[in-house]
């Protein structure tokens, strides 16, 4: 699942990105023109046209490949990947726990690497491959880490679980799961308030020692 060539993108994709930037600039020029014409602008505001203009100005096109499905979206530049996943694509498996990159509940894989999606703007992820908890299983067949979490009861309320599992998979892929201590260190960005930590460590160790491809 990991994209080994995260930085080498096909030509066509780069071109499209340039196109979107051109579109964005065109829109900006339009807004400037409106702004320089006070009377119509005032009228526009009274008719709530300002919102429509603002909307055109505010939104930029973003292409996200999430769990193998391409999404062509129009998002505000300030929208986080987390909120886009949850509110626009209805992939609510990725959780919001703090919105400040302090709890890890929102962990997803971007081009194979774990990131806090609450600290990642959607525009930053454009053109990248994103894997969320919903994309980990192969149909009905759970990922080995999901199986291990079930077996070892690596959760209680389940809210931090998607982030823990995404982090755990990355932890092994990164080569940071060679001992209990190392796992604890590299899993410390994912808070579990129910206190499933020992069970989570046991689950990760089992997957690591099982030698399954994660």
């Amino acid at each position: 699942m990991e994209n080994k060539n995260a930085h080498s993108k096909p030509e066509s994709e780069l071109e499209e990105k340039d196109n979107s930037r051109r579109n964005f600039l065109k829109q900006s020029a339009f807004i400037t023109a409106v702004a320089l014409t006070p009377a119509p602008a005032v009228k526009a505001a009274a008719m709530h046209l300002d919102e429509k203009i603002a909307e055109a100005f505010e939104k930029v096109p973003v292409k996200l490949e999430v769990n193998g499905v391409m999404h062509n979206l129009s998002v505000e530049p300030r929208a986080t990947l987390l909120d886009i996943l949850r509110e626009q694509i209805d992939l609510t498996g990725t959780k919001k726990g703090c919105d400040h990159g302090q709890c890890g509940a929102c962990t997803v894989h971007v081009d194979g690497h774990r990131v806090n999606s609450c600290l990642t703007l959607g525009v930053m992820a454009s053109g990248k491959k994103i894997t969320t908890i919903e994309g980990l299983a192969k149909g009905e067949e759970l990922h080995p880490m999901q199986e291990a979490f079930l077996k070892h009861d690596g959760f209680q309320c389940g809210y931090c679980t998607p982030g823990q599992i995404m982090s755990a998979v990355a932890c092994i892929r990164e080569g940071h799961a060679n001992s209990e201590t190392e796992i604890r260190e590299y899993m410390s960005g994912n808070i579990c308030r129910c206190g499933a930590y020992p069970n989570i460590v046991n689950a990760i160790q089992e997957v690591k020692s099982g030698g399954q491809i994660v």
Partner: peptide
């Protein structure tokens, strides 16, 4: 194992928001 565990590990468990 938890009867709702599968929903929780696959992200399908729906919380209030």
């Amino acid at each position: 194992s938890r009867v709702d565990g599968r929903l929780k590990v696959t992200g399908k468990a729906k919380y209030s928001a």
